[in-house]
Simulated scan of single mutants.
Amino acid sequence: VHGIVRGLVVTYLGLVLFLLGVNGGFMEVGSSIGRDLAALDSKLPVLIVAFMLGLVTVLAEPAVYVLTHQIEDVTGGYVRRPLVLGFLSAAVGFAVLMSVVRILSPALDLWMYLLPGFGITILLSYIVPDLFVGMAFDAGGVASGPMTATFSLAFVQGIAAQIPTADVVTDGFGMIAVVAMMPIISIQILGALYYLATRKKQSKGGVHD
């Protein structure tokens, strides 16, 4: 009981401090960085920063930390935590990058990402092992946590506010949907790779037998 109470108190204090940091300037910093980078003549820096921001932001998500540990524990080390983190990190990096590309390209609409993206997830769910299907959809939920919703979203909205052809209301939102989608695809791809590797080992074992 003492441990539970202590955990609740520490969690509460941590959440209060986090929200104070967000309101005290965390979101403003992200928005300011986005505006400054979008104001540059070359759009390459903003694309690079967007990808790097997605890479590192997801690593700070508390829920991602918990999920990856649970995956490794439940699978008995079959699915290694660093590998899952790597796939998740790359997925969120590409998600933020895709969101910035959508803002910079007026011809791109959000549905052009979501419709084929979720179509791919449905197709992959019939191919990859059931374990990875559940993991993938859980990963999509935890990757779009408070860190992404505060810093990355503010960063994207700052870019939308600076680009003349973009609108903060219509283009500044939608990033969270892409961030929730990409980890699903990436973990399912990881599942497909595991499935192929397992089949290859089994076929080699059958040949030796």
Rank of each mutant, 00 (worst) to 15 (best):
K204R: 11
R199W: 00
Y126A: 07
F18E: 02
A91R: 10
D130L: 06
A180Y: 06
V64G: 00
A160T: 00
L196C: 05
G174L: 09
A91I: 01
A177Q: 12
D73C: 01
L153N: 04
I127T: 09
D109S: 12
F151D: 00
K200E: 09
S203Q: 11
T198V: 00
A50G: 07
V178N: 06
M182R: 12
L53N: 05
V49Y: 10
V179C: 06
L8G: 06
M27F: 04
Y195L: 13
G86D: 09
L123M: 13
M52A: 14
A63L: 07
V207F: 15
V133E: 07
Y65Q: 09
G134C: 03
G77F: 15
L59V: 07
L19T: 07
V133A: 08
P106H: 06
T165M: 09
V58I: 11
A154K: 08
Y194D: 04
L44W: 08
D171R: 13
T150I: 06
H2A: 10
L114C: 11
M27I: 07
V22K: 06
M147G: 02
G117H: 12
L114P: 01
V133D: 11
L104K: 05
V49I: 12
Y126C: 03
V92P: 03
L88Q: 03
F18T: 01
G119L: 13
P183W: 13
G30E: 04
A63V: 05
L67I: 02
D171I: 00
F118G: 02
Q70K: 12
L153V: 05
G205V: 00
G25V: 02
Y65F: 14
I159Q: 06
L40I: 03
L85K: 12
V156G: 04
Y126M: 07
M135I: 08
H69Q: 07
I127N: 08
Q202K: 08
S32M: 13
V142T: 04
T68S: 06
V56W: 15
T150W: 08
D73S: 14
D41S: 13
S152N: 14
G174P: 03
D41M: 08
I185E: 04
A63H: 03
V74P: 00
G34N: 03
D36K: 12
S42F: 03
M181H: 02
M175R: 04
P164Q: 11
G172Y: 08
P45F: 08
I33Y: 13
I48D: 08
L153W: 05
G24A: 04
L53F: 11
L190C: 06
F26D: 05
D36Y: 08
M27V: 03
L153M: 12
A177F: 15
I122H: 07
V9H: 11
Y126E: 07
L8R: 10
P45W: 08
L44S: 08
T121Q: 01
Q188H: 14
P183E: 08
S105M: 10
I184Y: 10
T170I: 04
H208P: 00
Y195G: 04
A39E: 14
G145E: 01
S186K: 02
S99W: 11
V64N: 07
I189P: 02
L55W: 04
S89M: 11
P106Y: 09
I33Q: 11
T75E: 07
G172W: 09
A160P: 00
G145I: 01
V101H: 14
